[in-house]
């Protein structure tokens, strides 16, 4: 539980800073766009449209969607899958880094933490652009492979797909994920590890039975820290994803900016937030539930 406690000041500030804009967004989602003006009579029409059924299904990834306007739901599911993949990639990358700093570095831990923040010294946009240069048709990877004679034509599968977006999202968030895991590892009493060895554990058994369970609050915090903001990201899918790798954030931006349908954009955004909140709560409940049960037994 202590791991969530670490998040609570940030959570408080976020609630205060986001409460008003979110209220405005909720209100907006119950209005309608009629031409160039907003119709401010309250209506659930936007939501009705998102979830409106149809007899002829739209098939995506082999799954039939019986929806009249399937784009938001499909994009949302796709975004959730991509974020989930990024999160699942980030945790095993971040964990060894956190473990190394917590258990292997003897002096100068703060220097290692400082090194972790170096990527944040440039803007997010620049970092995503750097990936574009690497993965591009004439980018570093393609020209490198061609110079080595491994390929003869540039690979165009590197960029503009959801795989590329997932890789870049994972890279962008891995340093963030190190910190909560590091904190939870650092808090583990070293005599517990010595006791586990004394009781016959090999290093691996000790990790599995003591270190990993005691660092779970940090892992949960890190997973939420990566999963929640990546679902709605639109910078990375815009630059890296192209049309194949677009996410629900792109649709929302599109509805607000290009299609001049802010109320619909607001409704999609609210649905997205509600789904993320539900998943996050379910995740916390599932992982916390296990511990609770262990306590009550």
């Amino acid at each position: 539980m202590a791991g969530y406690g670490l998040l609570s000041p940030a959570l408080l500030i976020m609630v205060a800073m986001l409460a008003l804009p979110i209220a405005a967004l909720v209100l907006l989602s119950f209005w309608r766009q009629s031409g160039y003006t907003l119709d401010t009579t309250l209506t659930g029409a936007n939501y009705a449209r998102i979830f409106g059924l149809s007899d002829s299904p739209t098939v995506w990834m082999g799954i039939p969607f019986y929806l009249a306007y399937p784009v938001p739901v499909i994009l949302l599911i796709k975004s959730l899958m991509m974020s989930l993949t990024a999160t699942v990639t980030v945790i095993p990358l971040a964990y060894p880094m956190a473990y190394f700093i917590a258990f292997r570095v003897r002096s100068g831990k703060s220097i290692w933490i400082l090194l972790l923040t170096i990527p944040f010294w440039t803007s997010y946009l620049l970092r995503v652009f750097a990936w574009k240069i690497m993965l591009g048709y004439t980018g570093a990877i393609n020209s490198g492979l061609m110079a080595l004679g491994i390929i003869h034509h540039p690979l165009d599968a590197l960029l503009y797909n959801s795989g590329a977006v997932t890789v870049v999202l994972a890279h962008s968030w891995v340093s963030f994920a190190v910190l909560p895991i590091y904190v939870s590892l650092e808090k583990i009493d070293r005599s517990l590890l010595e006791a586990a060895s004394d009781l016959g554990d090999t290093r691996w058994q000790r990790f599995r039975r003591i270190t990993l369970p005691l660092s779970m609050p940090g892992v949960i915090a890190a997973a939420l820290m990566v999963f929640i903001p990546t679902v709605g990201d639109y910078v990375t899918p815009t630059l890296i994803g192209g049309s194949g790798g677009s996410m629900v954030g792109n649709l929302i931006q599109d509805l607000f900016m290009k299609r001049n349908n802010a109320p619909m954009g607001a409704a999609v955004a609210i649905v997205m937030m509600a789904v993320i909140a539900l998943i996050a709560l379910l995740f916390v409940w599932l992982t916390g539930y296990h511990k609770m049960r262990a306590r009550r037994r």
């Binding site: 005599s191 003591i210 511990k291």
Partner: peptide
């Protein structure tokens, strides 16, 4: 340590909290 015929009662007791 894990293959020695000894066991220890630690000063802090080192009870596994989970």
């Amino acid at each position: 340590a894990n293959r020695r015929p000894t066991n220890m009662v630690f000063q802090s007791y080192a009870i596994f909290p989970h």
